[in-house]
Design a protein around this nucleic acid. Structure first.
Lengths: 339, 339
DNA sequence: GCAGCCAGTGTGAGCGCTCACACGGAACGG
DNA sequence: CCGTTCCGTGTGAGCGCTCACACTGGCTGC
């Protein structure tokens, strides 16, 4: 390692190895047409000098920054966070850097601004982990300028042209949960929804409704929630008033809130009310009582999502990737109370 | 907006506005020495053409990418995640992009590789949200090459040269919790620690110990944990065997695990055992029972951390930033059981 | 035996921008 | 009325790299 004011550039390496710039470039980029002793000489020079390629210069000429941009929601929720982790790991493995913009509010203007930020950075592709209507709407227009993939915006989204995406089969997850509860003997299953402008929330609700209808069970009015524990807490009263014996919540956070509220009212879970969450957060097995929930592999989802993006960057028309959810039965579900 | 194969460049704008390249550059960079009608003409041309500056070209010549790199741990935990959100928001507000590397394992080699990745990207500065010993050790050597700031690695860290940092006063937080429990009448307070190679965990333990000692209370053997709910769950038996009546856990996740385990054993909280967490995750008020915990403002922490980094980029020697924690008393703490 | 080929290397140009500097002209003092 | 200052603008060079192409020499093929 030499210490000098200016970091070494390719020309320094070329001079030291006694070759041309072009040859150094070939070595750096793993080009095959280089004799192996030449390659070794260049590699030695690179190591001696502590040379590192200048990404800005490379990006300028190749018009590619080998960076993917991620637009996400600024919540510390388990799902989006884990998906980001999976995505970043996959991107890094594929030689891409990851630039993020985390939005507190996912309105149309904010998404648009975030996308512009990222585009100015020269990202090769974009992933949006915020599949609510505003985000999707903001995305539709600019599809042409840079490849965009969404996480959790299924093909059947009611909005115009389908964006390529990776998603968990939410509908199936919800059906699994409803089936489980009906099989336990519950007459019907109540649903505490996620925010209705989220595609995921709508898919879960659709699955819940479909499974109930197909089983000939009454479909109770869904109770609106917003993913948060506090919304689960607030919803408890209405669910109790409705005489719910089984509740499918939009996610585990909401289930936690509901569990807390039921406990405060002296209601037993699952004795009086069975509760199923959605996500399987790491704490789920340790809640009081341990939570039955629909497990989603967010990490895999993030990886899949990157696969879709890379396929698009290669010019392919990738399929929508589906990740299968599964039901994890713990102690928060049981037979309905006897009348 | 004109559609064309090549996106417009500065020269196109210059031609359209009838000025030189340099003048366009001045307008784009908000330079003052431009007559206002010239500026308006240039701005109109920019808007017409849909021109956007090419960051790669700018970075090449300015040797600054206006990007900060963040190295974090790949856990969906509330603290690091929220800090990242705060950091990114602050960076964006300051006109910086944020590139992340999220590591599943924070060993020395991984941190080094992550830092190299980010450095190759040309980041102006680096934030490390993974203040365990391995990370700090990996950081020490390269301090010179790029400004580094750590989140949660306090000045008094036992390791060599202090890195600039922003951190919550963990010791004070732990003292607050211990004080609260002693005031309730507990003879002493047990501690379920975080991983011992984490600086935060050690600070919390130090605060816990100091407060006990200063109060003349017995200092029980701390029980080792790793931040996870499952470690809290596992620790329950030992704590019960030790006759603990009050436990301070390393974080809220561990508290959740402990709460679950106590419930399974039929022990009442706070009747038999009082529990205090650390972090104040959004679910804390809804746990069974609602959790008394030490609140940390991670979002503010992230913002502060970026302030420190920006100060360093301006060439200042910033102070270590401290964020004050506070105790949030809920229902998981009460007087000790009567004998 | 010479056209043809390919592996291995070098050459020149240029990606889009900012920097240091040069330059003309209005404003101002003496 | 001329030197000095400033404002507004333009000029040339060059950041570090990759691209398309040109070149060399040893090899195959008929």
């Amino acid at each position: 390692m030499h210490e000098s004011a200016r970091p070494p550039v390719m020309a320094d390496v070329a001079a030291r190895a006694g070759v041309s710039l072009q040859t150094v470039s070939r070595v750096v980029n793993g080009h095959h047409a280089v004799r192996s002793d030449t390659r070794e000489r260049v590699e030695a020079a690179i190591a001696d000098l502590g040379y590192r390629v200048n990404t800005a210069a490379r990006a300028l000429v190749t018009r590619s920054s080998r960076t993917v941009g991620v637009v996400g929601v600024s919540t510390a929720e388990f799902g989006p966070t884990s998906a980001l982790h999976g995505l970043e790991a996959a991107a890094r493995a594929a030689g891409y850097a990851t630039s993020v913009v985390l939005l507190p509010d996912v309105d149309r203007a904010a998404v648009r601004a975030a996308v512009d930020n990222l585009r100015d950075l020269g990202v090769d592709g974009l992933v949006v982990i915020a599949p609510d209507d505003a985000a999707v709407a903001a995305l539709e227009a600019l599809e042409a300028s840079v490849p965009v993939v969404t996480l959790e915006a299924p093909l059947d989204a009611a909005v115009g042209g389908a964006l390529p995406s990776a998603s968990v089969d939410q509908e199936r997850g919800a059906r699994l949960a409803v089936r489980h509860l009906l099989d336990l003997g519950h007459e019907t299953v109540h649903h505490l929804t996620g925010p209705s402008d989220w595609l995921e929330a709508r898919s879960r609700e659709a699955g819940w409704r479909a499974e109930l209808e197909e089983s000939g069970a009454r479909v109770p009015e869904p109770v609106p929630g917003d993913w948060s524990a506090s919304s689960g807490h607030r919803a408890a009263q209405q669910l109790v008033d409705d005489g719910a014996t089984a509740v499918l919540t939009g996610n585990d956070q909401a289930a936690i809130g509901l569990l807390g509220a039921l406990w405060q009212r002296g209601l037993a879970v699952p004795g009086d009310v069975s509760v199923v969450g959605f996500d399987d957060v790491p704490e789920a097995p340790y809640l009081v009582p341990p939570l039955t929930t629909v497990r989603q592999d967010f990490d895999a989802l993030g990886r899949r999502c990157l696969d879709v993006l890379l396929a698009r960057l290669r010019g392919e028309e990738p399929d929508v990737q589906r990740v299968e959810p599964s039901l994890v039965v713990r102690l928060s579900t049981g037979p309905p109370p006897r009348r």
